[in-house]
Design a protein around this nucleic acid. Sequence first.
DNA 1: GGAAATTAGTTACAATTGTAACTAATTTCC
DNA 2: GGAAATTAGTTACAATTGTAACTAATTTCC
Lengths: 157, 157
Amino acid sequence: MARPTDLQLAWFLPYRLSVLSNTISSAMASDYSRRFKLSIPEWRVLAVLADTPNITAADISARTAMDKVAVSRAVADLLAREAIVRAPVAADRRKSHLCLSASGMRMYAEVVPVARRYEQELLNGLTPTDRAALDRIVHVLLERAAVLGPAEGDNPR
Amino acid sequence: MARPTDLQLAWFLPYRLSVLSNTISSAMASDYSRRFKLSIPEWRVLAVLADTPNITAADISARTAMDKVAVSRAVADLLAREAIVRAPVAADRRKSHLCLSASGMRMYAEVVPVARRYEQELLNGLTPTDRAALDRIVHVLLERAAVLGPAEGDNPR
DNA sequence: GGAAATTAGTTACAATTGTAACTAATTTCC
DNA sequence: GGAAATTAGTTACAATTGTAACTAATTTCC
């Protein structure tokens, strides 16, 4: 049926992943922002700091694949709302260590169950075998995608 | 190790899917735009019209999960570049049917192998079993995500 | 038959995001 | 020891995207 030059967008993996991820992210984003006034980047920074306190903005970039500007903006916002605290590093005064404030921790503790429930709702449709397969597959694809991107062109990022 | 309130962002499915999809999409986007001056929305419109000529902008929206404004913009751009052709529908003059021009088809024919190669590079890391599992899993997750989104809040989109 | 409601698509404006240039601190290396 | 290069983080500006209001055509329904 499909001509040889035809791609069948509906079955094209990058397209399907993009639709899937956007559907999930925008559902969650609208929920977070409605309930907690948190954007996705802010929520990510919160989550990383809950996991590993006293790291720098650059560390957050490295762990989240977020751009350093995006991190800077999210951090500025969370600081303004006093959800996190910034402490200059004595040994290198360009850096600051960040960690959650008491109220940031409370906020995080409130968001986590909501986030977990989303994930659970998604995973509930899958058999244990499929869940394991998904973990494996996403891992492989992430690795390959990371290599593919920079390799293809000339952008040295 | 992880405290009970901790989410472990690195294992959080929505987060992993988002990083995966963004990595893939931005690699492809930079490649498309460098070689063909095509944005992702433009490429999607092109692909849908290659698959199904003579449909309306609204039809494209419905098939791609793109917002109608995004479609309108991509269409305007492709029209300006004469990659597609617009013909008013006699029976309902609010609508127009769109289809690829000869040069649009050539452009599409050039992009397809590049797109396919990307997909292939990704899939090459997976066993046939995993590929089949991925198809199934993405399908299930898409369905669940579609239900989850609107159900959670009050946005009637 | 015609006012009120709906629909396709566009335009205007606001918010978000990406890129480049920048400041200030530190490191490298002659 | 100090000029040149590097690094952390921010700021300014441009490009992209989302939302709301709009125009023009059509449909509904009294």
